[in-house]
Design a protein around this nucleic acid. Structure first.
Length: 345
DNA sequence: TCTGGGGTCCTAGGACCC
DNA sequence: TCTGGGGTCCTAGGACCC
């Protein structure tokens, strides 16, 4: 979907359309914490981008409309879009709230037919939801995903297998899936800037330096990706975290927040009928130093007091330091279904 | 620039079992 | 004395995704 959160907000409030819209944290006149989730194209003209600190966005474009994300609305919209998409492929994989992979291999006979199908899908989404999206058609997930990003907004890009290598070669390595900021920097230091550079690089050295991912990058640079389109069905962890409005040393307040995060997790686990065995806390100090500390119990539980007591015990050793706290978080994992498992409290 | 929140997966070390 | 090999599970940190 194109600038999904911002586009949904514009749909609900058409008068926003002509203005820069930034969805994310509250900028609080330049003292706010957090980042930009999504912004519309009018805001991008000022240099605002997703992931940017909200204070920076506020400096770049103080007159923009700054909105807090309305996740309920985005999730509902996303769910309806995913229902539309599911009609078309053999295999379907949702990717976040606003992206999806559709394996249509057996539904079409050629890339021309695939492109027509892409047009049909775009039209249906636009008719039903008044939103635009950009679609990539490719021989595998990797190429399709990069192609989907090639022409935005409201674009379609088709890349056949025999065109894939040429299509990728001039693009930055950063465009590859699983090449983030750190890997990009490491590759750049090795003189690898584009996917073409990567395709021509010594495979032995890449494997040596990047392990399993190295092997993936080598194939990816050739336009090869054997990953299946597979729906992720089971949840592996449920977590909550909170950045305080100001760094704090108020232990009562920190522990109160911890209890609240535990309650929120507990409610979600009950709804999902899930028991957990592992609790992990997270703490970030004012200098951004971050630690996690976890414990696996000897039994599965869904009990709120267990969660609160365990997370408090895990967090306490980190609260004696002479440093203000920026963030705390709680995560539960190692799940069993409560309908199958014996419940121990 | 001053860095959210919800996730997944990988790595490396260590404990422990037979 | 100086010590194998297969396996599982746990822990902490980090990179990456949207």
């Amino acid at each position: 979907m194109d600038q999904f959160y911002a586009a949904v907000e514009e749909r609900e409030r058409p008068e926003f359309k002509e203005k820069p819209v930034v969805v994310g944290a509250d900028p609080k006149d330049g003292r706010g914490r957090g980042v930009v989730s999504t912004c519309n194209y009018n805001a991008r003209k000022y240099g605002v981008k997703s992931g940017m600190p909200i204070t920076r966005a506020w400096k770049l474009c103080p007159d923009a409309i700054f909105l807090r994300p309305n996740y309920k609305l985005y999730i509902e919209t996303s769910n309806r879009i995913m229902i539309i998409l599911r009609q078309y492929p053999d295999k379907f994989e949702q990717w976040g709230l606003d992206e999806a992979f559709l394996d249509v291999t057996s539904k079409v006979r050629s890339f021309e037919e695939a492109e027509k199908l892409a047009i049909t899908i775009k039209r249906e989404i636009h008719n039903k939801e008044k939103l635009t999206c950009s679609i990539g058609v490719g021989p595998n997930k990797l190429v399709a995903k990069i192609a989907s990003d090639f022409k935005k907004p409201d674009g379609i890009t088709v890349v056949r297998q025999n065109e894939a290598k040429e299509f990728l070669a001039p693009l930055s390595v950063r465009k590859l899936l699983w090449v983030g900021k750190k890997t990009e920097r490491r590759l750049n230091e090795m003189g690898i800037k584009t996917i073409g550079d990567l395709a021509n690089f010594d495979t032995r050295i890449l494997k040596e330096k990047f392990g399993m991912m190295g092997s993936y990058y080598i194939l990816a640079a050739q336009g090869i990706d054997n990953c299946e389109v597979v729906e992720k069905t089971t949840v592996k962890s449920v977590s909550r975290e909170r950045t305080f409005e100001e760094d704090t040393s108020d232990i009562d307040m920190i522990l109160e927040t911890l209890n609240r995060l535990c309650r929120e997790i507990h409610e979600e686990l009950i709804e999902m009928k899930i028991l957990f065995k592992t609790v992990t806390i997270k703490i970030r100090y004012e200098n951004f130093e971050t630690h996690t500390h976890g414990k696996t119990l000897s039994f599965f539980t869904g009990n709120l007091q267990n969660l609160q007591k365990t997370s408090k015990e895990l967090l306490e050793p980190y609260l004696v330091r002479q440093k203000n706290v920026r963030l705390i978080g709680v995560r539960t994992s190692n799940f069993a279904s409560s309908s199958k498992q014996k419940i121990l409290l």
